[in-house]
Design a protein around this nucleic acid. Structure first.
Length: 230
DNA sequence: ACCGCAGGTATCC
DNA sequence: GGATACATGCGGT
Protein backbone atom coordinates (compact mmCIF):
# COMPACT_ATOMS: atom_id res chain seq x y z
CA UNK A 1 0.00 0.00 0.00
CA UNK A 2 1.28 3.50 0.61
CA UNK A 3 3.66 2.64 3.37
CA UNK A 4 6.17 5.07 1.96
CA UNK A 5 3.80 8.01 2.10
CA UNK A 6 4.73 10.01 5.11
CA UNK A 7 1.78 11.45 6.97
CA UNK A 8 2.26 15.11 7.57
CA UNK A 9 0.22 17.10 10.04
CA UNK A 10 -1.37 20.37 9.08
CA UNK A 11 0.91 23.30 8.56
CA UNK A 12 1.40 25.01 11.89
CA UNK A 13 2.27 28.47 12.98
CA UNK A 14 5.83 28.88 14.11
CA UNK A 15 5.95 30.45 17.54
CA UNK A 16 9.68 30.37 18.19
CA UNK A 17 11.95 33.21 17.31
CA UNK A 18 12.33 33.49 13.58
CA UNK A 19 15.75 32.41 12.39
CA UNK A 20 17.30 31.45 9.10
CA UNK A 21 17.53 27.86 10.31
CA UNK A 22 13.87 27.82 11.24
CA UNK A 23 12.99 29.12 7.77
CA UNK A 24 15.05 26.39 6.12
CA UNK A 25 13.30 23.86 8.32
CA UNK A 26 9.82 25.17 7.47
CA UNK A 27 10.73 25.21 3.80
CA UNK A 28 11.82 21.60 3.99
CA UNK A 29 8.60 20.59 5.77
CA UNK A 30 6.28 22.43 3.41
CA UNK A 31 8.16 22.23 0.17
CA UNK A 32 5.82 19.77 -1.57
CA UNK A 33 2.68 21.65 -0.62
CA UNK A 34 4.22 24.95 -1.66
CA UNK A 35 5.45 23.62 -4.99
CA UNK A 36 2.02 22.20 -5.68
CA UNK A 37 0.37 25.53 -4.98
CA UNK A 38 2.83 27.35 -7.20
CA UNK A 39 2.21 24.89 -10.01
CA UNK A 40 -1.51 25.63 -9.72
CA UNK A 41 -0.70 29.29 -10.20
CA UNK A 42 1.46 28.46 -13.22
CA UNK A 43 -1.43 26.58 -14.76
CA UNK A 44 -3.54 29.73 -14.69
CA UNK A 45 -1.05 31.49 -16.92
CA UNK A 46 -0.64 28.34 -19.00
CA UNK A 47 -4.28 27.76 -19.86
CA UNK A 48 -6.47 30.30 -18.14
CA UNK A 49 -8.54 32.58 -20.39
CA UNK A 50 -9.12 36.29 -19.85
CA UNK A 51 -12.18 35.57 -17.71
CA UNK A 52 -10.01 33.55 -15.39
CA UNK A 53 -7.39 36.30 -15.19
CA UNK A 54 -10.14 38.82 -14.45
CA UNK A 55 -11.47 36.57 -11.69
CA UNK A 56 -8.02 36.40 -10.11
CA UNK A 57 -7.74 40.17 -10.24
CA UNK A 58 -11.11 40.54 -8.51
CA UNK A 59 -10.01 38.05 -5.85
CA UNK A 60 -7.13 40.39 -5.09
CA UNK A 61 -9.48 43.38 -4.85
CA UNK A 62 -11.22 41.38 -2.13
CA UNK A 63 -8.23 40.31 -0.06
CA UNK A 64 -7.04 43.80 0.88
CA UNK A 65 -7.71 44.21 4.58
CA UNK A 66 -9.69 41.03 4.90
CA UNK A 67 -8.88 37.37 5.29
CA UNK A 68 -7.94 35.15 2.37
CA UNK A 69 -10.88 32.94 3.27
CA UNK A 70 -13.26 35.86 3.07
CA UNK A 71 -11.76 36.64 -0.31
CA UNK A 72 -12.41 33.11 -1.51
CA UNK A 73 -16.02 33.14 -0.31
CA UNK A 74 -16.51 36.54 -1.89
CA UNK A 75 -15.32 35.41 -5.30
CA UNK A 76 -17.80 32.53 -5.16
CA UNK A 77 -20.57 34.95 -4.27
CA UNK A 78 -19.90 37.37 -7.15
CA UNK A 79 -18.95 34.84 -9.83
CA UNK A 80 -22.32 35.14 -11.63
CA UNK A 81 -21.81 38.90 -11.87
CA UNK A 82 -18.11 39.06 -12.76
CA UNK A 83 -18.64 39.58 -16.48
CA UNK A 84 -21.52 42.00 -16.62
CA UNK A 85 -23.16 42.43 -13.20
CA UNK A 86 -24.17 45.94 -12.22
CA UNK A 87 -22.50 47.58 -9.26
CA UNK A 88 -25.62 47.13 -7.08
CA UNK A 89 -25.83 43.45 -8.06
CA UNK A 90 -22.19 42.94 -7.06
CA UNK A 91 -22.65 44.87 -3.82
CA UNK A 92 -25.70 42.85 -2.97
CA UNK A 93 -23.87 39.59 -3.65
CA UNK A 94 -21.06 40.72 -1.35
CA UNK A 95 -23.37 41.79 1.44
CA UNK A 96 -23.01 39.41 4.37
CA UNK A 97 -19.95 37.85 2.75
CA UNK A 98 -17.35 40.61 2.52
CA UNK A 99 -16.82 43.29 5.11
CA UNK A 100 -16.81 46.15 2.59
CA UNK A 101 -19.54 45.22 0.10
CA UNK A 102 -20.08 48.66 -1.39
CA UNK A 103 -16.46 49.77 -1.54
CA UNK A 104 -15.34 46.52 -3.17
CA UNK A 105 -18.27 46.44 -5.60
CA UNK A 106 -17.11 49.88 -6.69
CA UNK A 107 -13.58 48.56 -7.34
CA UNK A 108 -14.91 45.69 -9.43
CA UNK A 109 -17.31 47.76 -11.45
CA UNK A 110 -14.94 50.66 -12.05
CA UNK A 111 -11.98 48.47 -12.97
CA UNK A 112 -14.04 46.33 -15.32
CA UNK A 113 -15.48 49.39 -17.04
CA UNK A 114 -11.97 50.75 -17.54
CA UNK A 115 -10.50 47.47 -18.78
CA UNK A 116 -13.38 46.96 -21.22
CA UNK A 117 -12.76 50.38 -22.66
CA UNK A 118 -8.97 50.16 -22.52
CA UNK A 119 -8.27 46.65 -23.82
CA UNK A 120 -11.60 44.91 -24.25
CA UNK A 121 -10.78 42.98 -21.07
CA UNK A 122 -7.99 41.20 -22.95
CA UNK A 123 -5.89 41.07 -19.84
CA UNK A 124 -3.42 38.44 -21.04
CA UNK A 125 -2.53 40.37 -24.16
CA UNK A 126 -2.19 43.54 -22.11
CA UNK A 127 0.10 41.91 -19.55
CA UNK A 128 2.16 40.29 -22.30
CA UNK A 129 2.73 43.67 -23.91
CA UNK A 130 5.21 44.64 -21.20
CA UNK A 131 8.85 43.69 -21.75
CA UNK A 132 9.79 44.61 -18.24
CA UNK A 133 8.51 42.82 -15.13
CA UNK A 134 8.49 45.98 -13.07
CA UNK A 135 6.70 48.04 -15.70
CA UNK A 136 3.92 45.47 -15.83
CA UNK A 137 3.23 45.83 -12.12
CA UNK A 138 3.76 49.60 -12.20
CA UNK A 139 1.02 49.86 -14.78
CA UNK A 140 -1.44 47.91 -12.65
CA UNK A 141 -0.67 50.12 -9.66
CA UNK A 142 -0.52 53.50 -11.36
CA UNK A 143 -3.39 53.16 -13.81
CA UNK A 144 -6.10 55.30 -12.27
CA UNK A 145 -8.80 53.29 -13.99
CA UNK A 146 -7.87 50.17 -12.04
CA UNK A 147 -9.17 50.41 -8.48
CA UNK A 148 -7.97 48.11 -5.74
CA UNK A 149 -4.40 47.24 -6.69
CA UNK A 150 -1.51 48.78 -4.77
CA UNK A 151 1.95 47.20 -4.93
CA UNK A 152 1.02 44.43 -2.52
CA UNK A 153 -2.17 43.38 -4.26
CA UNK A 154 -0.76 43.87 -7.76
CA UNK A 155 2.07 41.50 -6.83
CA UNK A 156 -0.45 39.10 -5.32
CA UNK A 157 -2.44 39.13 -8.56
CA UNK A 158 0.60 38.57 -10.79
CA UNK A 159 1.86 35.75 -8.56
CA UNK A 160 -1.57 34.11 -8.47
CA UNK A 161 -1.80 33.99 -12.25
CA UNK A 162 1.59 32.31 -12.44
CA UNK A 163 4.07 35.12 -13.08
CA UNK A 164 7.29 34.95 -11.11
CA UNK A 165 9.49 37.29 -9.18
CA UNK A 166 6.93 39.52 -7.47
CA UNK A 167 7.11 39.77 -3.70
CA UNK A 168 3.84 39.98 -1.80
CA UNK A 169 4.90 42.25 1.03
CA UNK A 170 1.96 41.92 3.38
CA UNK A 171 2.09 42.49 7.11
CA UNK A 172 3.11 38.91 7.88
CA UNK A 173 6.03 38.84 5.47
CA UNK A 174 7.10 42.30 6.65
CA UNK A 175 6.96 41.12 10.24
CA UNK A 176 9.24 38.21 9.35
CA UNK A 177 11.74 40.52 7.68
CA UNK A 178 11.66 42.87 10.68
CA UNK A 179 12.23 40.01 13.12
CA UNK A 180 15.22 38.93 11.08
CA UNK A 181 16.51 42.53 11.28
CA UNK A 182 16.51 42.66 7.51
CA UNK A 183 14.30 45.73 7.69
CA UNK A 184 13.94 48.20 10.56
CA UNK A 185 10.19 48.29 10.86
CA UNK A 186 7.32 46.04 9.77
CA UNK A 187 5.48 49.14 8.59
CA UNK A 188 4.22 48.61 5.01
CA UNK A 189 6.36 50.36 2.37
CA UNK A 190 4.19 53.22 1.17
CA UNK A 191 6.05 54.28 -1.95
CA UNK A 192 7.26 52.50 -5.07
CA UNK A 193 10.92 52.93 -4.20
CA UNK A 194 10.43 51.63 -0.68
CA UNK A 195 8.52 48.62 -1.94
CA UNK A 196 11.29 47.85 -4.44
CA UNK A 197 13.93 48.20 -1.76
CA UNK A 198 12.26 45.72 0.57
CA UNK A 199 11.65 43.42 -2.36
CA UNK A 200 15.40 43.48 -3.08
CA UNK A 201 16.15 42.77 0.56
CA UNK A 202 13.86 39.74 0.38
CA UNK A 203 15.73 38.70 -2.76
CA UNK A 204 19.00 38.82 -0.83
CA UNK A 205 17.48 36.50 1.77
CA UNK A 206 16.41 34.03 -0.91
CA UNK A 207 19.92 34.06 -2.38
CA UNK A 208 21.53 33.46 1.01
CA UNK A 209 19.18 30.57 1.78
CA UNK A 210 18.99 29.20 -1.76
CA UNK A 211 15.21 29.13 -1.40
CA UNK A 212 13.32 29.99 -4.56
CA UNK A 213 12.01 33.57 -4.48
CA UNK A 214 8.38 32.61 -5.07
CA UNK A 215 8.56 29.74 -2.60
CA UNK A 216 9.98 32.04 0.06
CA UNK A 217 6.84 34.13 0.18
CA UNK A 218 4.68 31.11 0.94
CA UNK A 219 7.20 29.80 3.47
CA UNK A 220 7.17 33.05 5.44
CA UNK A 221 3.43 33.55 5.16
CA UNK A 222 2.67 30.00 6.28
CA UNK A 223 5.04 30.38 9.22
CA UNK A 224 2.95 33.30 10.46
CA UNK A 225 -0.51 32.08 9.51
CA UNK A 226 -0.21 28.31 9.59
CA UNK A 227 -1.78 28.16 6.14
CA UNK A 228 -0.85 27.81 2.51
CA UNK A 229 -3.68 29.42 0.58
CA UNK A 230 -3.67 32.04 -2.10
C1' DA B 1 -19.95 36.64 25.34
C1' DC B 2 -16.10 39.22 24.10
C1' DC B 3 -12.15 40.96 21.63
C1' DG B 4 -8.45 41.32 18.20
C1' DC B 5 -7.69 40.76 13.68
C1' DA B 6 -8.18 39.82 8.55
C1' DG B 7 -2.17 38.61 2.65
C1' DG B 8 -4.83 47.12 1.96
C1' DT B 9 -6.44 50.76 -0.90
C1' DA B 10 -8.71 55.11 -2.23
C1' DT B 11 -9.54 59.42 -0.95
C1' DC B 12 -9.26 63.54 1.52
C1' DC B 13 -6.53 66.97 3.96
C1' DG C 1 2.90 62.15 3.81
C1' DG C 2 -0.64 60.94 7.48
C1' DA C 3 -5.43 60.03 8.93
C1' DT C 4 -9.72 58.04 7.83
C1' DA C 5 -13.51 55.28 5.61
C1' DC C 6 -14.64 50.93 4.11
C1' DA C 7 -18.67 48.83 7.96
C1' DT C 8 -18.08 42.15 9.27
C1' DG C 9 -17.24 37.31 10.22
C1' DC C 10 -13.95 34.24 12.39
C1' DG C 11 -11.07 32.26 15.90
C1' DG C 12 -8.93 32.30 20.34
C1' DT C 13 -9.95 33.16 25.35
Amino acid sequence: MNADVEFRGPVEKVKDTLTIDRILEAHEERRDEIKQRLSEFENVWKDGDDDRLWEEMVFCFFTGGCSAKMGLRSIEAVRPFLGDGTQPEIASALSGVHRYPNARARYVYASRSFLKEHCNLEIRKKLESFDCHLERRDWLVREKGIKGLGYKEASHFLRNIGLKGYAILDKHVLKCLAELKIIDSPKPPNTRSRYLRVEDQLRDLTERTKIDFDEMDLVLWSMKTGQILK
